[in-house]
Amino acid sequence: KVLVLALYDYQEKSPREVTMKKGDILTLLNSTNKDWWKVEVNGRQGFVPAAYVKVL
């Protein structure tokens, strides 16, 4: 399983997205889209901007 680090806070803007806080460790589920990556955080799955996270 691939983990990513949240570099910035992100507030979800649609039901398909998830909120994350800077420093959160998320599970990367899909990174085929260069702009939006699907992650799991706190038991929820959704998209975050790829530029806001870094693969650990």
Results as ranks from 00 to 15, higher is better:
residue 12 E to S: 13
residue 24 D to K: 03
residue 50 A to T: 06
residue 9 D to P: 07
residue 15 P to L: 10
residue 6 A to L: 02
residue 38 K to R: 14
residue 14 S to A: 15
residue 33 N to A: 10
residue 30 N to H: 10
residue 20 M to A: 02
residue 43 G to K: 11
residue 43 G to S: 07
residue 42 N to W: 09
residue 19 T to Q: 06
residue 34 K to E: 10
residue 34 K to R: 07
residue 51 A to R: 14
residue 36 W to P: 00
residue 34 K to D: 12
residue 28 L to D: 00
residue 49 P to S: 02
residue 26 L to A: 09
residue 24 D to P: 00
residue 42 N to K: 12
residue 53 V to T: 04
residue 36 W to C: 04
residue 11 Q to N: 10
residue 30 N to V: 12
residue 41 V to R: 12
residue 34 K to N: 13
residue 56 L to D: 05
residue 48 V to I: 13
residue 6 A to F: 01
residue 23 G to S: 04
residue 7 L to I: 14
residue 55 V to I: 15
residue 1 K to G: 15
residue 51 A to S: 08
residue 8 Y to A: 14
residue 34 K to M: 11
residue 52 Y to H: 05
residue 24 D to Y: 05
residue 2 V to M: 08
residue 44 R to V: 13
residue 1 K to N: 15
residue 18 V to L: 15
residue 37 W to S: 03
residue 15 P to R: 03
residue 1 K to M: 15
residue 33 N to G: 09
residue 10 Y to P: 00
residue 1 K to E: 12
residue 43 G to R: 06
residue 7 L to E: 04
residue 3 L to C: 05
residue 10 Y to I: 01
residue 14 S to M: 07
residue 12 E to W: 05
residue 46 G to T: 02
residue 48 V to K: 00
residue 12 E to A: 09
residue 53 V to F: 08
residue 29 L to Q: 05
residue 52 Y to G: 07
residue 38 K to H: 13
residue 10 Y to E: 00
residue 1 K to S: 12
residue 17 E to F: 08
residue 6 A to P: 01
residue 19 T to I: 03
residue 32 T to F: 13
residue 17 E to R: 05
residue 34 K to Q: 10
residue 1 K to Y: 15
residue 5 L to V: 11
residue 37 W to Q: 02
residue 37 W to I: 06
residue 52 Y to D: 03
residue 25 I to T: 08
residue 41 V to M: 10
residue 41 V to K: 15
residue 4 V to S: 04
residue 4 V to R: 01
residue 41 V to Y: 14
residue 15 P to D: 10
residue 18 V to N: 05
residue 39 V to K: 00
residue 50 A to D: 01
residue 53 V to I: 08
residue 24 D to T: 10
residue 5 L to Y: 08
residue 13 K to T: 14
residue 11 Q to V: 09
residue 18 V to R: 02
residue 18 V to H: 04
residue 34 K to H: 12
residue 21 K to W: 11
residue 4 V to I: 07
residue 27 T to I: 15
residue 54 K to Y: 12
residue 38 K to D: 04
residue 40 E to I: 09
residue 15 P to G: 13
residue 5 L to G: 03
residue 32 T to S: 10
residue 27 T to P: 10
residue 11 Q to S: 10
residue 7 L to V: 10
residue 36 W to K: 03
residue 14 S to Y: 09
residue 38 K to I: 13
residue 17 E to M: 05
residue 33 N to R: 09
residue 4 V to F: 06
residue 49 P to W: 03
residue 4 V to M: 09
residue 38 K to A: 14
residue 43 G to V: 05
residue 34 K to I: 11
residue 7 L to G: 02
residue 10 Y to D: 00
residue 7 L to M: 07
residue 11 Q to K: 12
residue 54 K to F: 15
residue 23 G to H: 07
residue 3 L to M: 09
residue 53 V to W: 00
residue 20 M to I: 14
residue 16 R to K: 12
residue 50 A to C: 05
residue 40 E to F: 06
residue 3 L to S: 10
residue 48 V to W: 00
residue 38 K to S: 10
residue 12 E to I: 07
residue 43 G to L: 09
residue 51 A to M: 13
residue 17 E to S: 06
residue 22 K to G: 07
residue 32 T to D: 15
residue 5 L to R: 08
residue 54 K to N: 08
residue 28 L to S: 02
residue 9 D to H: 06
residue 8 Y to T: 13
residue 49 P to L: 04
residue 55 V to W: 06
residue 49 P to C: 02
residue 31 S to K: 15
residue 53 V to C: 05
residue 43 G to W: 05
residue 18 V to G: 02
residue 45 Q to I: 13
residue 9 D to T: 09
residue 36 W to S: 03
residue 22 K to M: 12
residue 24 D to W: 08
residue 13 K to M: 14
residue 14 S to D: 13
residue 32 T to E: 14
residue 30 N to G: 07
residue 34 K to T: 06
residue 30 N to C: 05
residue 8 Y to G: 09
residue 54 K to E: 08
residue 11 Q to T: 15
residue 50 A to E: 04
residue 14 S to N: 13
residue 39 V to T: 02
residue 11 Q to W: 15
residue 32 T to V: 11
residue 26 L to G: 13
residue 47 F to E: 05
residue 41 V to L: 10
residue 56 L to W: 07
residue 20 M to T: 04
residue 7 L to P: 00
residue 13 K to G: 11
residue 30 N to W: 07
residue 41 V to S: 11
residue 21 K to F: 12
residue 55 V to M: 13
residue 28 L to K: 02
residue 42 N to H: 11
residue 48 V to G: 00
residue 48 V to D: 00
residue 48 V to A: 04
residue 36 W to Q: 03
residue 48 V to M: 01
residue 19 T to C: 05
residue 15 P to F: 12
residue 41 V to H: 13
residue 13 K to S: 14
residue 55 V to N: 07
residue 28 L to I: 04
residue 47 F to L: 11
residue 13 K to Y: 04
residue 8 Y to V: 13
residue 23 G to L: 03
residue 10 Y to V: 01
residue 28 L to C: 04
residue 15 P to W: 12
residue 8 Y to F: 13
residue 37 W to E: 01
residue 41 V to N: 13
residue 16 R to C: 06
residue 56 L to A: 08
residue 53 V to D: 00
residue 12 E to N: 14
residue 18 V to W: 07
